[in-house]
Design a protein around this nucleic acid. Structure first.
Lengths: 236, 236
DNA sequence: GAGTGGTCTAGACCACACA
DNA sequence: GTGTGGTCTAGACCACTCT
């Protein structure tokens, strides 16, 4: 796969940070030196450095250089858009997904609002619970516009829907509005989660948009309170 | 105050979006047209557009243009680092701050870890509760390194500490690691919050860093569950 | 074929850090 | 005074979309 020069530089530096060639609290080579090393122009080097900065790998200090941040301290970034599969693999724990429902529905008023569609638009509804170490602690309810996702099967839902959407269908997921609130448990939480006496769940609501700024998914991810954790790296 | 050209362009376009001169779902002028209009170079225009994109104002669509997003849909962004004062003014509600404690302490082991300092470093501890419409629903516990904040008074804590730090002291806050979890209420929550029968609080933990990547603050913001809301705009 | 945004280049000037 | 990063310029080529 062909890459852009600045992305290649970015990835090479990320690699050097991860493998300890560049150590936390030390300085990266100066922009001038990177220009020489990668035989490119300064703006290109700076694009790579900006990416590193945005992703929390380095901190640029005016007139002094770029210093490497301790990524250990910023571990477990659920920020951005990350699927359960990705999180699960990072956590290195036994996980399992149970599909409770997969159907084509007509959106009610709430869903018409969330997905910005009319009542005749067809929508996939997927309900899945997620087990970590044999406890069902997350209930995911996904709604996808059929317009963009012609086919969904139980097998796909069992695995990673996102992998399928991006890989097989070539959908280009671009951004999301994420909202986190706490709600009282409803009957579904009680039915599908090992709720363990808690009467509230943490709900992460996502409106997900494709690359042409068209929404294609609304999701509610309902977490058992005690197991919920959200980490973010925010620049001012 | 002198501004950079790309920031000026950014701000002018933000203004035009907010005042409806550029409408949601319509296209911005092309980069070429913006270059002509602002009499600048294309890379400079593109820096402005990148800012707009990062802040959720526009979506760039390859080979087609930049379209304006509906910022109404992405309201109330507590993402990034925002102080209570800023949030309060946006919400347009009656708010009040009560300072319960302001003292210089020696950090315990937990705090030494969070602030990456030794046991002899002096630390300001500030405990405040936040009232919205006469209900105490947030308990803020802040720890500042005295090294960077020589003086704190009750008056400052009553207002906006951040305004003081950035305005008076000229501290340059750069980034933060933010973590959201749910915890059981402790005695302080029960003492200082109108806890209203809830036995858990949503805790937002922040490690805040200055522009040289040196940490200077650790904060816990403890929210009554039913009033907690966190909204984020995340790009893939 | 005209227009678009994505990338890249090879310079330039600036203000400030540091020694 | 040297080195640093921040900003800006005036081009260029590309691959694709739209009409």
């Amino acid at each position: 796969m062909k890459q852009n020069k600045y992305k290649l530089i970015y990835e090479e530096i990320v690699e050097k940070i991860k493998t300890g060639i560049y150590l936390p609290k030390t300085k990266l080579p100066s922009e001038h030196e990177l220009v020489a090393h990668y035989e490119t122009s300064r703006e290109t080097v700076r694009k790579a450095l900006n990416l590193l900065s945005q992703h929390g790998y380095i901190q640029k200090i005016h007139r002094k250089g770029s210093i490497v941040l301790d990524i250990q301290k910023f571990d477990f970034p659920i920020s951005g858009l990350v699927s359960f599969k990705e999180i699960a693999s990072k956590m290195n724990k036994d996980t399992d997904t149970v599909v409770h429902e997969l159907s084509l529905i007509k959106p009610d008023e709430f869903l018409q609002g969330q997905l910005s569609v009319g009542k005749d638009e067809k929508v996939w509804k997927v309900v899945r619970s997620r087990k970590i170490e044999n406890e069902a602690i997350i209930l995911d309810i996904d709604y996808f516009l059929k317009r963009y996702v012609p086919l969904l099967t139980k097998e796909i839902c069992q695995g990673s829907i996102y992998e399928y959407l991006e890989g097989e269908l070539g959908l280009d997921i671009s951004f999301a509005k994420k909202e986190i609130v706490v709600e009282k448990c409803n009957q579904f939480d009680k039915e599908f989660l090992d709720i363990d006496g808690y009467d509230h769940v943490v709900v992460v609501k996502n409106n997900v948009y494709l690359d042409h700024a068209n929404i294609f998914q609304y999701t509610e991810s309902r977490h058992r309170m005690d197991k919920f954790r959200f980490v973010d790296f925010a620049r001012r």
